[in-house]
């Protein structure tokens, strides 16, 4: 093909962007920006870490009253700390990679600056969802991983029947990833609604209310057998497991480490994969439908 002038080849190359490298550039640019505003970065890291410590103190306090959450659920203190560490890992990663972007998305729609994102020869959802990285969120991730390791060490030392199988260690990050995707899909779909709702109103804040349910072991929704209020918990559990699967985001990876032998784990684990894929596909459909309704603010 040497008869083509080089200029022709350069301007018409249909090469796709290398998404990994684009993401690295986003991450790098965000880091440069975060380091420019140094004190802001430090304050954000400290405030989110203190949120972790306060929660940890709160749960320690609860376990000073009881040894286990619920009768025969198996959630004693260190198993619960595995769960809590997983909550923190999943949430801090969502906060680091997706939250600033989902927040900005409705702002982009309102100001009309979404225009530029639509011009770029790259997947628009990728561009919108990942262009900023909030590096200060990783402080929590680091602390949560330490807490996880400590709790696992404690369990293996003090509980005779606690053994970690390599498969569990392999599956854990996979399901953490699934959890992140589930929470992200819900988040981006909710913030996309501002295309229809107009101005800076969106259902984005609803994400925080819904995901609150994902922060506790699903056993607490079951309630004691025979209690007339049991249906409330059961309907919450079913709804947030199968319709909006936020309950699976933390419960599945945490159970894989802390309660691998529980009988319903296999079906939950299977459904978590399906739920992740379905959530992501649905979020893409909502996202692209929203883009079609975009009107672009006049300049």
């Amino acid at each position: 093909m040497s008869h083509f002038p080089p200029e022709y080849l350069a301007s018409n190359s249909s090469q796709k962007p290398n998404y990994a490298r684009v993401f690295l550039t986003f991450a790098r640019n965000s880091l440069v920006r975060d380091m420019t505003f140094r004190s802001n970065f430090i304050i954000e890291t400290i405030t989110s870490l203190s949120w972790m410590f306060m929660n940890l103190g709160f749960y320690l306090l609860i376990f000073s009253y009881t040894d286990v959450i619920g009768v025969a659920t198996g959630w004693t203190q260190y198993e619960f700390f595995v769960f809590f560490a997983t909550v923190a890992i999943v949430n801090s990663l969502v906060q680091t990679f997706f939250m600033p972007n989902a927040q900005e998305f409705s702002e982009l729609i309102r100001t009309g600056n979404l225009d530029f994102a639509l011009l770029k020869p790259i997947d628009t959802q990728f561009l919108i969802s990942l262009q900023k990285v909030n590096w200060s969120g990783l402080g929590n991730t680091g602390f949560a991983i330490l807490l996880l390791l400590f709790s696992l060490w404690h369990l293996s030392r003090h509980e005779a029947d606690f053994v970690l199988h390599p498969l569990q260690i392999l599956l854990y990050p996979l399901y953490v990833f699934c959890g992140i995707i589930i929470l992200y899909s819900l988040m981006i779909a909710l913030s996309a609604t501002s295309v229809w709702l107009g101005r800076n109103q969106s259902l984005y804040n609803f994400w925080f209310y819904i995901t609150n349910f994902s922060r506790y072991p699903m056993e607490i929704y079951s309630g004691p057998v025979g209690d007339p209020r049991r249906w409330i918990g059961e309907s919450l559990r079913t709804f947030f497991s199968y319709v909006i699967p936020v309950l699976l985001a933390v419960n599945v990876p945490a159970r894989i480490l802390a309660k691998p032998m529980a009988p319903d784990n296999l079906s939950l684990a299977l459904y978590a994969v399906i739920g992740t894929i379905l959530s992501f596909i649905l979020s893409r459909m909502i996202f692209y439908r929203a883009l079609r309704g975009y009107r672009s603010a006049s300049s």
């Binding site: 190359s13 090469q15 796709k16 962007p17 290398n18 490298r21 684009v22 550039t25 986003f26 640019n29 440069v32 920006r33 420019t36 505003f37 770029k120 020869p121 790259i122 561009l127």
Partner: peptide, 16 residues
Amino acid sequence: DLPAQESFRLHQQIYR
């Protein structure tokens, strides 16, 4: 908040 050259690099990656 960044120098323009960082945005240029980003464009280099996006347009490959």
